[in-house]
Amino acid sequence: MNRAMSLNSVIGNREQLIGARASSWRRMWSRLTKNRKALIGAIMVFLIVFLAVFANWISPYAYQQADFTSLNQGPSLSHILGTDSLGRDLFTRINYGLRSVCIVGFGAEFVELTVGVMVGALAAYKGGWVDNVLMRLVDAVASFPSFLISMILVTMMGRILPVMLLAVAATSWVGMARVVRSQVLRVRQTEYIQAARSMGASSLTIILRYILPNAMGPIVVAVSFGIPANMMAEAGLSLVGLGINPPTPDLGVMISEGQQSIMSYPWQLIGPVGVFIIALLGFTFLGDGLRDMFDTRSRR
């Protein structure tokens, strides 16, 4: 009786000492919110993605709907960002343009991540001649002028969204492959992987449970910097006239048109450029914040 009681108190004491553990999501959240730059970046990204995803609901007009009674109008209550030379609502077109930009940005990044992880992880894992062949391939692709390759691909295969996406991803996966390879190499030779092996963990457990989580940080950061880079590439293509076929709205196309009428109708440039800047800055800030977050040394 007495012993049982003391045992209970020991266990109670133990629980008290252990305390509650903040869930990993909550810890991530608190770390993110403490980093003001990352928080601002996250909000900007959220806004952009929200506009792109819900473009159909948010936009007051249809993107191809021309109104010849209100050409080149400045911002007003009915057209909050003004209209373009065909009388189409700019806010609507920006939302849909964001959608294309996001599809290319995220989609190309997804392709890059998939190819990069496969190539990088395989190279790091197999080592030897496999590593050599794959990394020389990566070097070769990296030495191509990437914008030229994208232009050639789009010219050859047509100005549609999937082609744009692949054209952007065609050369930029090499960066990801390098990051993944270096991360896997770094983690693979750490002592905790040896410890895991001597514990008797299987290769699959080692990869999924120890290598990937610890290799994740720089990869996530590379992704968050890769997305705005892809958006830039896509806008660049549009700017030289290789954007998506009209009438599908595209931020790059809108920027290049707005730039022609900058003196008479400046809002036609300011709107698309402003939104584009928000998108790019948001991802860059977020990437910076994530980099700080994943830095274990400074992690608290």
Binding site: T190, A196, S198, M199, T296
Partner: peptide, 20 residues
Amino acid sequence: RRRIQFVAQDPYSSLFPNMT
């Protein structure tokens, strides 16, 4: 492997950094 366990020289690098 269970019967023989191992303590490495550098404790920090032998612990899983992503785990409590």
